[in-house]
Structures are given as structure tokens and as C-alpha cells.
């Protein structure tokens, strides 16, 4: 826990003071990380968020039909996706995809003495390895959540309009009328916390590697399990706190 906190504080320190200390954070590795974490995740985020959007619409209509309130499905999908499912599913996906990659990379670098090599070259490993990943994660995870919001609402809209016989335009008008900036902000705030969690868990687990390839496999698995667990727990706590204030 102490290591995780020091990683975050060190990252902020190097981000702010790096240039003055002659070790500025370079944009090229940040851009490369953004490409890997964000752009290359778009296809799978699109597929999963569209599927979950449609699934939510199917279940919503099925349950609400018992009360003759099918039209309220728009409300359920809009709030459910923007406040809960889009950030949650995107966070889990990024933890499985990029958190594990981060742990595997750091584990391999530790075993191959690449982290030691950075130290003896006078290059701060936190600045060189952690800050680009953290920055990229902080930008791309919320961006992916916005994308997941759009895709899931559109996919659900297609199903709802076909099932209930309302136009897509009407569906979107209702959705926009229902959703406030706070609802989207709720999801984005969570995704920023998930971004920090996924990065820190990946780095902490990756740097705790012991042994060879077997050890790298172990820390990679551990990073996925820890990352997803942390995301789900924090998601619940966030919902609990923000719905009571």
C-alpha cells in the first residue's frame, strides 16, 4: 500500500518537477502508451459496450412489460450505461488488457535488469516507466468511457426503436432530456479513479516479480485479479458515497 502511494506521489512529482530536475516526461512514450491503451482497445470496447447496451434494453423491456411501463426502458438504459456499466465494463477491459500488459512488461524488465540499467544510467524508473502509462491511462480510459456511452446508447436505441416502434430520433431526444452532465460526469470521475487503480496495480504487481518467466506469468495474473477486484469494490463505494451526498 505504501509503495502504491509513493508511486502516485512520485509520479506527480516527476510530472511537475521533471523538467527542472533535467528529467522531463517526453511526449513520445505518452503518445505510444495512449495508442496502445486507448486506440487499440476501441474495437473490443465497441463490441462489448454495444452488446451490454442491447442486453440492458432487452432485460429492461422484458421486466417493465409486466407493469406496462416498457417506455421507461430509455431511463434505465441511459442512467445504467452512463453511470454504471460503461465505466465498469471499460475499466475491467482495460485492467485485463493494459493492466496485465503493464505488469508483464515491468516484471520482464525487472528480471532482465532493465530497471537496474535505468537506475545506473541516472534515469528515474518512475519518471521513465510509470508516468507515461499513468498519463495515458488518465486520458484514454475516460475517453473510452465516453465512446462506450455513445456506442451502448446507440445500440440500445436501435433495439428499443425496433421493439417498441418509436423512432431513433425520439429515443435520443428522450435520452438527452433525461441525462444531465452530472450523470456523464459520474461515470467519467469513476473512470479516472479506475485509471489510477489499473496503473498502480500493474506497476506494484509487476515490480514484485520473483523468478523467471513463471514469475512474470504469476504477477500478470495477479495484476488482472487485483485490478478487477479493486475496480468493482471502488465502483460500489463510489456509488454508495455519491448517492448519499
Amino acid at each position: 500500500m505504501g509503495f502504491a502511494v509513493s508511486l502516485v506521489t512520485d509520479s506527480v512529482y516527476w510530472l511537475v518537477m521533471g523538467k527542472r530536475r533535467g528529467q522531463r516526461v517526453r511526449p513520445a512514450p505518452v503518445a505510444a502508451e495512449m495508442m496502445e491503451i486507448g486506440v487499440r482497445a476501441i474495437p473490443i470496447v465497441t463490441l462489448l459496450s454495444a452488446t451490454i447496451g442491447v442486453m440492458l434494453a432487452i432485460q429492461g423491456i422484458y421486466q417493465l412489460r409486466r407493469f406496462g411501463a416498457e417506455s421507461q426502458v430509455v431511463l434505465g438504459v441511459a442512467f445504467g450505461m452512463t453511470r454504471e456499466f460503461a465505466p465498469l465494463i471499460t475499466g475491467i477491459l482495460v485492467a485485463g488488457r493494459s493492466g496485465s500488459a503493464l505488469a508483464a512488461r515491468l516484471g520482464t524488465m525487472t528480471i532482465n535488469q532493465e530497471v537496474d540499467a535505468l537506475r545506473v544510467m541516472g534515469i528515474q524508473p518512475v519518471r521513465f516507466l510509470v508516468v507515461p502509462s499513468l498519463l495515458a491511462m488518465l486520458v484514454m480510459l475516460p475517453a473510452l468511457v465516453v465512446w462506450a456511452d455513445l456506442v451502448s446508447l446507440a445500440a440500445a436505441g436501435l433495439y428499443v426503436s425496433a421493439e417498441l416502434g418509436i423512432t431513433l430520433e425520439s429515443y435520443f431526444q428522450q435520452t438527452l432530456a433525461l441525462l444531465g452532465p452530472g450523470d456523464v460526469g459520474h461515470g467519467l470521475a469513476k473512470s479516472a479513479i479506475f485509471a489510477v487503480l489499473v496503473t498502480v496495480v500493474g506497476i506494484v504487481d509487476g515490480s514484485s516479480v520473483e523468478g523467471g518467466a513463471e514469475g512474470v506469468g504469476r504477477v500478470t495474473t495477479r495484476a488482472v485479479v487485483h485490478g478487477i477486484t479493486a475496480i468493482v469494490l471502488v465502483d460500489m463505494l463510489f456509488a454508495l458515497v455519491t448517492t448519499r451526498v
Binding site: T108, M109, N112, Q113, E114, D116, A117, V120, M121, G122
Partner: peptide, 15 residues
């Protein structure tokens, strides 16, 4: 560290 150089056992080149 800028006045020393180290060649590690496995090379430790960044892959």
C-alpha cells in the same frame, strides 16, 4: 551515474 557505465550480465537492452 553519468560518470560510470555498466554492462549487465544479460545486456539489459530495452526490448
Amino acid at each position: 551515474s553519468q560518470r560510470i557505465g555498466v554492462a549487465f550480465q544479460g545486456g539489459a537492452l530495452f526490448s
